[in-house]
Amino acid sequence: MDVWASIILSVCAASTPLLIAATGELVVERSGVLNLGVEGMMIMGAVAAFATAQVTGNPYFGAVAAIIVGAAFSLLFAFLTLTLVANQVATGLALTILGLGLSGMIGESFVGHPGVRMEAINIPLLSDIPVIGKIIFGQDLIFYVSIALLAGVAWFLFKTRAGLMLRSVGDSHNSAHALGIQVIKIRYMAILFGGACAGLAGGHLSLVYVPQWVEGMTAGRGWIALALVVFASWRPGRLLIGAYLFGAVTIGQFHAQAVGVPIPAQFLTSLPYLATIVVLVLIARNRRLTMINTPAALGTSFVPDR
């Protein structure tokens, strides 16, 4: 039965960075901003985490660095799109390209060194419980953070006044502005939060998943996180399902291969995007679902009256 525990742990590891990055992007998109720079912020987080952990010897400093660098990098996006009212799609793409290049440059001297691993937290006794012990009480800190983060975001969005304000800004920034809600400020904060999450997700890659640094090691996971937000139709609960479903498919395909069920790897690579398209078609057919879940102002720039 240890095999199953081990498989589930693998799934958790594969899902955690997707979940964290997607949770951040969900908040950003709920505020009406589309930041396509997740991949770029993630890889900046990965290189920052690796370098910091390497220099200080402490993976937790690495995680903190990833959060700070991710947020700082997203600040660039926020400044361009909110203050200078640049096009969000173009700016997001630019952020991704910039992040991939810049991280390669920063990380050049760290290539080929084994990194500092963030070890699992093993709670004595509890983590020795068969099967579930390791899963519930014996994972790395970032895993617990990812779950707490998602729960916190769900609570924030739907149970707090600030969350209501954020959703209102995403629904109609003009109406929100007319009510005196500070649209730009809320969006700045949402983008910073999204950047911090993407950074941490990148940190998970280079601290937990594979403790090493190589150029381009996010390998498209930022894009999958973006697709997951749509797949989840902007609802946190469905995000959890989507991220873990994807993690399970990723791990499952290798197990399928190992036991002799051949599944083309290309099909699985495209699966999150296919699923996203299916979900988009499904929700587009239902007016109420579209209205309730899709941030109506998504991707549009806000210019207040003078």
Binding site: R161, S175, I181
Partner: peptide
């Protein structure tokens, strides 16, 4: 307002609370 400053995706109560 002439052009209502309402949020379609929110409930009546949420709109008022804002």
């Amino acid at each position: 307002f002439q052009h209502f400053s309402l949020f379609e995706a929110l409930t009546v109560a949420e709109n008022i609370a804002l």
